[in-house]
Design a protein around this nucleic acid. Structure first.
Length: 473
RNA sequence: GGCCCCAUCGUCUAGAGGCCUAGGACACCACCCUCUCAAGGUGGAGGCACGGGUUCGAAUCCCGUUGGGGCUACCA
């Protein structure tokens, strides 16, 4: 085998919006194949449509791929910079008689198809021998008969009768090449061996094959069309109506490895019941031939579950590092100078067990850092105001805590005893203390939290709660 | 409308003619654990779209129907 037989795949997103999870899965499958077979992963930006493309979106795509760890070997190439290649291919196709110029307007075409009832372009300009030039689009002459077959690694043989394929435009009337042309020219030029992309491209594939063959290339690549990702209404994930941007998930506190794991299982599964796969396992076990053919719903709940598992699998140190952006940056619910890294580190293991996304962290520790300290009204009402034993308990705790060893076990024992004096289980006794000191009825373990808070602040909050009850009555 | 794709619990899936009384996971419910909430553990409910074939035997193969989706641009 020569080097030209090396596996070469490309991921070719168009920079017309946020990079979404469907694209991420396509990129992942491409990447997995390359990693196992030792091939080359090429990144190509499909920006032939100058109107809709934006460099900012390209940066977003690059950032997201990098964050996910899907590194590429060549590129990013921009189709907008490869115009000479497309022009040369068009010249070649003119010479071989595959093309003709067309000056039909959309309206004229629609008017004619309305009468004949056969949709698509009717070949009106085929024999008019118009000279190419501005104002005239260039069309590819599709054979009137015969069948074009797509050999698809995922779907098998898919046949298209040539008579159902219209003479499609490959160069706009303003001279710009169209995607269908650029993609084929680039794939030939880049010696792509596997075209792995979403199913929505399947209908245009016979056109690509026709073009490919017309350009005299005997090296047709292998195709694999992946099922689309859908929303709860079973429609293709859309940048407009669904939350699908990879960077949204990053900002919400999803881990890239969790997202990758989840995405990998959307349309493929290993040969046993495992669901947690390392990237290494994905690489060695993933097979294009095993990819499902039906659309998959992108389920955030399930993603969150995976993310929780990954978070719990982090070491203390890793967890703290990953959490940093969420407790110090824009996500924090407190000014930077109120944050105490050591206190956070002490609480980190307790937080890690309770969250599914890193974005949930601030809520758990705002009682430590937020200024001023705020108590949830409903919780205060229920656990303190409407509990006639709340004040005695708070008072007793305050007195005992002022002289106690300020350690979790001690604090717990004390509260347990106080509760027993009122014939109360610890579960109920701790409720009023929790609300008074942490501001909510649910959260991190109470006694560790009090220690983090410190004796002085704990006593102050207990006093404040007792006073607040007096003021309320 | 035309062309194409798809069809196992609500969701993601296992299932390559007998291993299926259809397995796992998320979500849901119950219980256990427990200072709250989680996490964890145990158990439960829940599915082969329908109709014809083929076969001794079909979730698995074939045909049809129905349903869903994609494409149908001088977008990608």
């Amino acid at each position: 085998m020569t080097t030209t037989n090396q596996v070469r795949v490309r991921f070719a997103p168009s920079p017309t919006g946020f990079f979404h999870v469907g694209g991420a899965r396509t990129a992942l499958y491409n990447w997995l194949l390359v990693k196992r077979l030792g091939g080359t992963f090429i990144l190509r930006i499909e920006d032939t449509d100058r109107e809709r493309s934006d460099e900012a979106w390209t940066r977003g795509i690059l950032n997201a791929l990098t964050w996910l760890g899907l590194d590429w070997d060549e590129g990013p190439f921009h189709q907008s910079e490869r115009r000479p290649l497309y022009d040369a291919a068009v010249a070649k196709l003119w010479e071989s008689g595959h093309l003709y110029a067309c000056d039909c307007t959309r309206e004229a075409i629609d008017a004619r198809t309305k009468e004949t009832k056969t949709p698509g372009y009717d070949g009106f300009c085929r024999e008019r021998k118009l000279t190419p030039g501005t104002g005239r689009a260039t069309r590819f002459r599709v054979p009137d008969s015969g069948i074009t077959t797509v050999h698809d690694l995922v779907r098998g043989e898919v046949e298209f009768a040539n008579e159902t394929i219209e003479d499609f435009v490959i160069v706009k009337s303003n001279g710009d090449p169209l995607y269908v042309l650029a993609v084929v020219v680039d794939d030939i030029d880049m010696r792509i061996t596997h075209i792995i992309r979403a199913e929505e491209h399947l209908p245009t594939t016979p056109k690509a094959i026709l073009l490919w063959n017309a350009l005299d290339e005997a090296t047709l690549p292998l195709f694999a069309h992946l099922p689309v990702l859908v929303n709860e209404k079973r429609q293709k994930l859309s940048k407009r109506r669904d939350r699908v941007a990879v960077e949204d998930y990053r900002d919400l506190g999803f881990l890239p490895e969790a997202l990758l794991n989840y995405l990998c299982l959307l349309g493929w599964s290993p040969n046993d019941d495992r669901e947690l796969l390392t990237v290494g396992e994905m690489i060695t076990e993933f097979r294009l031939e095993e990819v499902n053919r039906s659309p998959a719903f992108f389920d955030e709940k399930r993603l969150a579950h995976f993310n929780g598992l990954y978070i719990r699998g982090l070491s203390d140190q890793e967890f703290i590092e990953r959490a940093l952006p969420f407790v110090t940056g824009d996500h924090a619910l407190w000014p930077a100078n109120c944050f105490d890294a050591e206190l956070f580190a002490a609480m980190a293991p307790l937080i890690r067990e309770r969250i599914a996304t890193l974005g949930e962290i601030p809520d758990y520790i705002k009682f430590l850092f937020a200024d001023p300290f705020v108590i949830d009204e409903a919780a205060f009402e229920k656990a303190i105001l409407r509990d006639e034993l709340a004040v005695p308990i708070l008072q007793a705790a305050r007195d005992a805590y002022s002289i106690a060893n300020f350690e979790p076990e001690q604090l717990k024992e004390i509260l347990l005893l106080i509760g027993e004096q009122h014939s109360r289980k610890l579960a109920k006794t701790q409720a009023s203390v929790r609300v008074a000191t942490m501001g909510t009825s649910v959260g991190l373990p109470l006694f560790e939290s009090l220690v983090a808070l410190g004796r002085t602040e704990t006593l102050a909050r207990l006093d404040a709660a007792i006073t607040a009850v007096g003021n309320a009555s």
